[in-house]
């Protein structure tokens, strides 16, 4: 029953769509780290209004479905005169969404940095900015690596939603082939394997980072 011809002809198309999936995931992850870091700094430093800005962002992003956020961003961009930027819209929406979870992961880690270290840094004459970037954040990122990795595999698996805003990633590429070939196994089996491989390579990078930084810090 397994149609080998269909399998062989699908693989190149799926492979190029898998690259889109990886690109979208990586861009979303970078934005998520950026938004999460800004948001956690706003929340925990004494900038006026920063706490509420960050809490509101986290509440909105965690309290609405990603699909709704994708629609808002994608259909909101034309209002700013930007047309046909599907990939950008998807990366921003997924990055904003994941950034809320990254905020909470980092918050737990930042609050676990011993108060004594911050007092010591201040006693040494470090500015608030230096304390954030040299003392707090480096430790927070290392401690958060396992939780962040887990969050970013969730980002990987939320990328198929981007098909409604015109990004042909791995899953939708499969749906398009399936619509022509009317069979599923030959297409969705390699897709599943593809996702596993992408997720595994993310965890490998994370493991490598963990080993590297644990060494530096012990």
């Amino acid at each position: 029953m397994f149609n080998l011809d269909l399998f062989y002809e699908s693989v190149p198309i799926l492979a190029s769509a898998a690259i889109v999936t990886v690109e979208l995931t990586v861009c979303s992850v970078i934005l998520s780290l950026l938004f999460g870091t800004i948001s956690v700094m706003l929340q925990l430093s004494k900038i006026p209004g920063g706490y509420w800005l960050s809490r509101t962002y986290v509440s909105i992003m965690r309290g609405t479905p990603l699909l709704v956020q994708l629609f808002v961003v994608f259909f909101g961009l034309p209002l700013l005169g930007i047309k046909g930027q599907a990939f950008l819209a998807a990366a921003v929406a997924i990055g904003l969404n994941s950034g809320a979870y990254t905020t909470e992961i980092l918050r737990a880690a930042v609050q676990n940095v011993p108060e004594g270290q911050i007092e010591a840094a201040r006693a040494m004459g470090m500015s608030t900015r230096q304390i954030w970037f040299r003392v707090i954040l480096p430790q927070a990122f290392v401690v958060s690596l396992p939780a962040l990795t887990s969050e970013f595999t969730i980002v990987l698996k939320s990328t198929p939603l981007a098909s409604v805003v015109a990004v042909t990633e791995l899953t939708y590429a499969g749906v398009v082939i399936q619509a022509r070939a009317f069979s599923a196994v030959e297409i969705f089996l390699p897709i599943a394997v593809g996702y596993v491989l992408i997720a595994l390579s993310f965890t490998q990078v994370s493991r490598w980072l963990e080993r590297r930084f644990r060494l530096l810090h012990t």
Binding site: F75, L77, K83, S163, V165, A166
Partner: peptide, 18 residues
Amino acid sequence: QVMAFSGVIPGLIAGSFD
């Protein structure tokens, strides 16, 4: 702009494509 059908009419109304 290759997209799932459920995005087509909302995108048209929003002006995401021509």
